[in-house]
Every structure is written in structure tokens, then in C-alpha cells.
Amino acid sequence: MEGSSILHSFTNIYFAIFALFCFKLLIKISLALLTHFYIVKGNRKEAARIAEEIYGIVPGSWADRSPLHDAAFQGRLLSLKTLIAQGFNVNLVTTDRVSALHEACLGGHVACAKVLLEHGAQVNAATIDGITPLLNACSSGSAACVSVLLHFGARAQPGGHLPSPIHEALKRGHRECMETLLAHGVDIDQEDQQHGTPLYMACTYQRTDCVKRLLELGANVNVGKRSDTPLHEAARKSSVEIVVLLTDYGANPKCRNADLKCALDLATPNSKVEQALLLREGPASLAQLCRLCIRKQLGRSCLATVPKLHLPEPLESFLLYR
């Protein structure tokens, strides 16, 4: 009898907690609907007051997507200009700190992004996940958005643990975005703790065009992710075209990673990658050694310097891998 009474008391407590939870959830949903109603009606002051008191965010922030976010994401330039003219704050953010500028860049809408920036949108605003408008532009592949953001002061190479725009561009295979970032001073051998160097990232996602361009621009062919080189990754991914490119640009096939394995050890047995690596196990030709030596001396300026040397066309083409 006593045990049954205790069980009944616990059941009542659980029901009370559950009822309280449901009541709080109902209030929150009601307030969210009320806030949205005020947005639609244009009563931004009342909406901001609710957001500040209930959601604990400062005025000018937002607890949900606003019409400004939708217009920016969908590329509706006229609607965006109208909303700004009505007094909408261009730096309104969602609970995840996503701004209208983030949305415009994710959609690749350069005209909308430019309007927002001209009206004071924060160019380096980051979401709770550290995503910046520049990262979104690189994800969408909009080189035009990347250029506009950089013109308005976006950090091309964010510090700390923020995601790297150039690595995002390479992951998606957006070569033009990558080149724009490099032209604005991004370190071509910048090593990300998670993804390695840009060249290593391009090898990971088998972006052959990007790999070739990075090598042309002077990327260090033997620097990857800690002791793992780009050649290790290309062999692991069974990408014979990239393996050939890397070795032609001087990748060392004898480099060993943390597991004491060279690229050949990672190649699938009897594969084209294994054959390509076996062919390059011996000493390089004298012509190849001379080319690598000259390119090493010229460094990253090689692509711009060689044409100025007025060499015979066949020799110039050889040095530039044309």
C-alpha cells in the first residue's frame, strides 16, 4: 500500500513537469507567431521588444527569418530595396546568427549582396557555426559575390578556428573563387588543421583543374596535412591524373607519413595509380631535374617571371608545363 502511494506521487510529479513543459512550449510558439505577425504588419519596434525580452537577444537581432532574409536568398532585389527603405535593419539575424547577407551570398545574388553592404551590412558577420558571407559565396561558387565582399573588407583568410573560404571553394571545385582569393593575398600553402593545405584539399575532392592551377601558381607540392602529402592523398583516392600531375611538378614519392607509408603503399594493387608510381620510382631525367631546379629558384613568381625571360618558345613551354 505504501509503495503504491509513493509510485502515485512520482507519477503526479512527472505529469506536472510534462504539463509545465507543454505550457512553456505553447507560450514560445504563440510568441513566435505573434512576432511574425508584427513583422508582416511592419511593427518592428514591438517585434524587437518581444525578441529582446523573450529570446534574450539584443535589439536589431532576430529570433526567426525575416522578409529581408527571404528576399535576399531568393534574389528579389526590388523587394529587398523596399524592405530596407521601410526601415528593416540589414543586420537582422536569426537565432543561428544568419544575416540577410549570408543568404544573398549563399544564393549567389551579387546585386542583393552589394545593396546590403552599401546599407551597412556586416561583411565579416559569423553564424554560431563560424560561417561568414564569404564562405557562403565560395560554397555557391559566385566569384562575383566573393569580389564584392573582398572589396567591402571581408577577411579572405580568417583566423582562429573559423572555416576557411579557400578550402570551401576547392571542396566544391570553384576554381574562379579560389583564384580571386589567392589574388587578394590568401596564402597558397595555408594549412587548415582539419583539411590540410589548399592543394591537399583539392586532391581529397579530386578537383584536377584546381590542382593544376595551384601547382602553376607555385603551391608547395610536398606540403599537405601534417606528414601526409598531397601525393599520399591522390594515391589513396586512386586519382591517376592527379598523381601524374603531382609527380611532374616534383612530388617526392618516397615521402612517408605518420604511419611510415609512402604513396605507393596506399595505391590499390595492380591499379593505374600503382603503375604510374612505379614508373616514377627511379631517378628523374636530367631535363626534369633542370626544370624543377629553375622553378624552385623562381619560386611562386615562376608563372609571371618565365615569360619575361624571352626564352625560346619550346623552352618556355617546357618550364611552364604547357
Results as ranks from 00 to 15, higher is better:
58 V>P: 05
200 Y>L: 00
96 D>A: 09
18 F>Y: 07
72 A>M: 04
136 N>W: 12
315 L>H: 02
291 R>A: 07
82 T>W: 14
258 A>N: 15
133 P>N: 12
102 H>N: 12
167 H>T: 00
104 A>E: 13
261 K>D: 01
275 Q>N: 08
187 D>Q: 06
88 F>H: 10
210 C>Y: 05
243 V>F: 15
253 P>M: 08
146 V>A: 09
222 N>Q: 12
146 V>K: 05
89 N>H: 13
237 K>D: 01
24 K>P: 06
59 P>E: 14
294 I>W: 01
186 V>T: 15
277 L>S: 11
183 A>G: 02
150 L>A: 04
281 E>P: 01
70 D>K: 02
199 L>S: 08
163 P>M: 11
306 V>E: 03
295 R>C: 15
141 G>L: 03
254 K>F: 14
231 L>W: 07
116 L>D: 07
94 T>Y: 04
13 I>T: 08
120 G>C: 05
237 K>P: 03
114 K>M: 01
38 Y>P: 03
189 D>R: 06
134 L>Y: 09
80 L>T: 06
238 S>P: 03
30 S>G: 15
4 S>G: 14
68 L>E: 04
246 L>T: 13
219 A>K: 07
152 F>I: 04
221 V>F: 13
317 S>I: 02
125 A>V: 10
167 H>R: 01
297 Q>I: 11
79 S>H: 13
199 L>I: 05
216 E>Y: 15
299 G>S: 14
60 G>V: 08
159 G>I: 04
62 W>Y: 09
31 L>N: 09
134 L>P: 14
174 H>S: 09
56 G>E: 00
94 T>W: 05
100 A>Q: 03
113 A>L: 08
55 Y>T: 04
133 P>M: 10
304 A>T: 02
288 Q>I: 03
156 A>R: 01
151 H>D: 01
306 V>Q: 03
269 P>H: 00
49 R>F: 05
180 T>W: 08
52 E>P: 01
168 E>F: 05
142 S>E: 07
231 L>H: 07
207 R>A: 02
74 Q>K: 15
232 H>C: 04
163 P>R: 10
290 C>Q: 13
255 C>E: 14
181 L>Q: 02
211 V>C: 07
178 M>C: 15
94 T>D: 05
74 Q>A: 09
292 L>Y: 06
216 E>H: 12
203 C>V: 07
17 I>G: 03
270 N>H: 10
179 E>T: 13
5 S>I: 12
256 R>H: 06
264 L>T: 00
8 H>K: 13
31 L>P: 09
71 A>E: 13
291 R>M: 12
165 P>V: 06
247 T>L: 13
64 D>P: 00
237 K>S: 12
162 L>W: 06
187 D>F: 14
75 G>R: 06
34 L>A: 04
267 A>C: 10
217 L>C: 12
270 N>W: 09
208 T>I: 03
147 S>E: 15
285 S>L: 04
222 N>L: 10
65 R>A: 01
72 A>Y: 06
76 R>H: 15
10 F>W: 00
183 A>H: 11
243 V>P: 14
319 L>D: 01
209 D>V: 05
51 A>H: 05
203 C>Q: 06
214 L>Q: 08
285 S>H: 03
210 C>S: 15
222 N>F: 10
45 K>G: 07
233 E>L: 07
162 L>V: 00
90 V>R: 08
93 V>G: 02
